[in-house]
Design a protein around this nucleic acid. Structure first.
Lengths: 210, 210
DNA sequence: GCAGAACGGAATGATCCGTTCCACTGTTAT
DNA sequence: ATAACAGTGGAACGGATCATTCCGTTCTGC
């Protein structure tokens, strides 16, 4: 084999990446897209998909897990930042930009999560909490780390046909939310509970709304 | 006919309301719910639905138009309030509580809108602008009325299995957003354009994200 | 009683989609 | 060379989901 540029092996290796990237794009744009859409976007046939993944579940799980790992990686990268608020804001910005939410929460519930994925979800929660603790003093009373999940959800709801414009607007409203977090005064209603947040990771959570 | 309580006519008249209410509940919970789900929720058969509406489109259009009218009604009710900020906040609260967004924006694009609906959408925009103008002075620089649509979209994204809890949390984050609107300082990125907002009312806007 | 409005719910027909299958193409090892 | 095969494209299959229609029934208004 060595390095023949157009070898079958080479093509296959390149397809590994191509397919994953195509799947990410397609499922970020529409969580319920058909497998054929992924094949078309990647410019490959169905066989190329099913040779690599045992089924749609498998592909979705992979994508979701990758998103989770990205989330953790961004949290750890941000943690290195000396200023707590900068770290917190940069982390949220990165997560919003990468549309991690569409890759994780919106895909979870579609398949049975791995034990490993569940463990990583726990880690993600811990990393978030660590960043959150560093800014707690700057935030208004009564705000909890579980509120952060909801803020991310809200940002993910901003969705326009143009991805670049979507990112721009999400940043705009993320800034608005972050400013809101530092205003004085109690917010109405109890914050979300941990159970309300993690429920999404259990299988069977029906998609609602469209 | 007159007033016999259990007459077929009476039952039919009551079904008019029952079906509409059931449809509202069902389609708020899931914009893509099947007609059978509406029938079941209403406790009627399919015939009762198709006797009243020529098809699913017709029912959806009716629901959507009702939502639009509710939006306008709430805007006009709020306009009577002497204090501008109170009016603005009360209006947004009412719209969020009624989940008007799920009834209008999320349903639009599923069918071809009536000319009358389009006209009402314009009126809705005017009423919103009128309320907005009264608070513009209190808001941070660069915020436009089109931002308001996006804030409503963000609130609508908060969605839990329990409707009461959903309302509670939406109120919480609406308060956060409103506070954020009054912080000093420019927000990043240009605000949404009117075209970006009204695009949803034209037919063919594919649902994205799930 | 009778004509028919109103109804419940099963049957229909179309569409969509995950998955499988098969013929084909280059590659590799002998 | 050439056999054996990994890798592939894309058509075909089978199940599921739905909007809509249809038919037999019930009850009202006269």
């Amino acid at each position: 084999m060595s390095d023949s540029t157009a070898g079958r092996r080479r093509q296959a290796a390149r397809n590994d990446e191509t397919i994953l990237a195509a799947a990410r794009e397609v499922f970020i744009a529409d969580a319920k897209a058909p497998m054929a859409a992924v094949a078309e976007r990647a410019g490959v046939g169905m066989s190329a998909l099913y040779r690599r993944y045992t089924g749609k579940d498998d592909l979705l799980r992979t994508l979701c897990h990758d998103g989770l790992r990205l989330y953790i990686a961004e949290a750890e990268r941000a943690a290195a930042e000396p200023d707590g608020w900068t770290a917190f804001a940069a982390f949220l910005g990165a997560v919003v930009d990468a549309d991690v939410h569409s890759l994780t929460v919106h895909l979870a519930g579609t398949f049975r999560p791995t034990a490993e994925m569940y463990a990583d979800a726990v880690v993600a929660g811990e990393r978030t909490a660590a960043l959150f603790d560093r800014v707690r003093g700057a935030l208004r009373e009564g705000v909890t780390v579980d509120d952060v999940s909801m803020l991310l959800e809200m940002c993910a709801a901003i969705r326009l046909p143009d991805p670049a414009r979507t990112m721009e607007l999400r940043r705009r409203y993320l800034a608005l939310l972050l400013d809101g977090l530092r205003v004085d005064g109690l917010l109405p209603g109890p914050p979300p509970t941990g159970a309300e947040i993690t429920r999404r990771w259990r299988q069977g959570a029906a998609e609602a709304g469209g």
